[in-house]
Structure formats: C-alpha cells, structure tokens
C-alpha cells in the first residue's frame, strides 16, 4: 500500500511536469509552474498538520516573509541568500514556539492573526532612494529569472518535498510525529519527546515554505502585500479536504488553482466567493482535521 503511494507520488509529479513540455506553450508552463509552487506551499502546511497536529490558518505569512525579505534585501543591494537564512530562522522559531506553547485552537487563531497583521502592515513598508520610493501597495520588484528555470526548480522542489512528505510517514520518526499529532499527552505518556517532534515538523514546514516563497516571488519577479492575503492562507486548508497524502495534495492544489484561475477569467468578481463557499462547507468534508480540536 505504502509502496503504491510512493509510485503514485512519482507518477503524479512526473505527469504534471510533462504536460507543459508536451504542450510547449508559455502560459501553460507559467500556470503549471505556479500550481507546482502552490503544491509545495500546501505540502509545507501539511508538514505542520500531519506531523504535529497544528493546522495553520495563516500560512501565507510563511510564504510572504521570505519573499518580502528577499525583495527588500535585493532592493537594498544585499544578496538574496541572507534573507533566506533569516526567514528560515524567523518562521521556524515562530512555528516551533507557537506549536510548543499553544493548543490546536490557539495555534489556528495565532497564525491567522499574524498573517492578517502582516497583510495590514505590508503596504506601509516603503523604501526610499533619494526621490524614488518603492514598496507600499505596489510592493517590490525582483530580478527577472527565465520561466524555464523557475519551472524546473519548482517541479524539482515539489518532487523532493512530496517524496520526503510521504516517506516520512513510513519512518520511525514519522510514526512518532503522527502519535504527537493524534494525542500529545498519550504520546508523552509513552516517552515521546514532544518538543523534538515539533522541532522537526516546524523545520520541515519552514524549509519548504521558504523554498515556495522564493519560487513564488521570482515567478512574478515581484512581491506585493497580497502575498499575505487570506486567500493564500486558506488555500492549503481547502486542499486538505481531499486528504493529506502528497499525491492528493499535489493534484488538488493544481485542481483548485486551475478552478480559481478559470473562475477568475470567466467571472473575475466571484472567485473569492468560491473560496468563501468552500470554507463554509469545509467542516462537512474536513471533519478529521478538527475532530480532536
């Protein structure tokens, strides 16, 4: 069963990778790349939920912080490597400490509040060079990276992330992390070191979120306050309705993004209503997620 899951993951990513190659169309490649980034982002969220029982309702901040720090650092003339390390540290500490100190419910509220605060604060971030001002509502620009490069990097990262995500469940560490997700006190009573498990879950989630944040910002060569939007934060939550395995999360991330984009093209006003409807109906489908809330 588990070997089948690994094969499914490989086939899923390989199929999605091949379609843009076969169609050889700029927009298709661009859209599939974006969907791959959304999948990495969703799996990053999954690391927190599946391996520490802490679903975030503000995961957009884990995507936005590295993107913003990279853009600011680039605009100030520093490299883009240091902000990656800084954002790794910041997001990791945030998730690790919050998951240690807060229960499931409180974690959801805390992550939600943080992402909204960043969403509200981001437009006020302005950098000035003499007469020129950058940032604010418009955000920051980043150097252009060829789409083919982002496409290859995104799918490579998605493949590695998805494999680690599912493979972890088969390892001893993954089983112990699963125990922490299901019942912290019961795991503790067996001798599981809760803080160590949450350390790994937060670390893996942060690593993938930072990768997704960088790919996202370089895909657009631009980062704006919308990266912290509720729309992005609730995306993984909605995807999780379909299950928490890597192939399901990957396929559903692609499907949801395509559906949202299609809706955006057909009736641009209504695509957030679509998200809102899914959120309202979420408890019917996503019962497992909060069953022990």
């Amino acid at each position: 069963m588990k070997a089948i899951q690994a094969v499914t993951t490989i086939l899923a990513v390989a199929t999605l990778f091949t379609i843009p190659l076969l169609l050889d169309n700029y927009f298709v490649t661009w859209l599939f790349t974006l969907a791959a980034i959304y999948s990495i982002f969703t799996i990053s969220w999954g690391f927190l939920e599946r391996y520490s029982g802490r679903p975030s309702l503000g995961h957009a901040s884990a995507l936005g912080i590295p993107a913003y720090l990279a853009a600011i650092s680039y605009n100030l003339g520093f490299g883009i490597l240091t902000p990656a390390l800084v954002s790794l540290l910041v997001i990791f500490l945030l998730y690790y400490l919050l998951s240690l100190k807060l229960g499931k419910k409180e974690f959801i509220f805390a992550t939600f509040v943080i992402s909204i605060l960043l969403w509200v604060a981001a437009p006020r971030l302005v950098l000035g060079y003499g007469d020129t001002m950058v940032g604010g509502e418009e955000g920051f620009f980043l150097p252009h990276v060829p789409l083919k490069t982002i496409y290859l990097l995104s799918f490579l990262t998605l493949f590695i992330t998805a494999m680690i995500y599912d493979f972890l469940a088969r390892t001893g560490l993954g089983i112990k992390m699963g125990a922490v997700r299901d019942d912290e006190l019961a795991a503790k009573a067996l001798g599981v070191k809760i803080s160590r498990m949450k350390f790994f879950a937060s670390l893996l989630s942060t690593l993938t979120a930072v990768a997704a944040g960088y790919l996202y910002s370089f895909q657009f060569s631009h980062v704006s306050p919308e990266i912290f939007s509720v729309e992005l934060s609730v995306f993984p939550l909605i995807v999780s309705i379909g299950g928490l395995s890597a192939p399901r999360m990957t396929f559903l991330s692609f499907a949801l993004l395509f559906a949202a984009r299609a809706l955006n093209a057909l009736a641009p006003q209504f695509h957030l209503v679509f998200y809102a409807a899914l959120l309202i109906l979420f408890p019917i489908f996503g019962r497992r997620l909060y069953a022990q809330g």
Binding site: K105, F109, V230, A276, A277, I280, R287, Y290, G293
Partner: peptide, 16 residues
C-alpha cells in the same frame, strides 16, 4: 461542531 470548524465557517461567511 467544534470551535475550529465554527471559526472556519465564520471566516468563510465574513469573506462572502
């Protein structure tokens, strides 16, 4: 049924 579920519904309702 639970606080988390109700919070998510309220969030969706708010966005709507």
């Amino acid at each position: 049924r639970e606080t988390v579920g109700r919070t998510i519904i309220a969030l969706g309702y708010g966005i709507a």
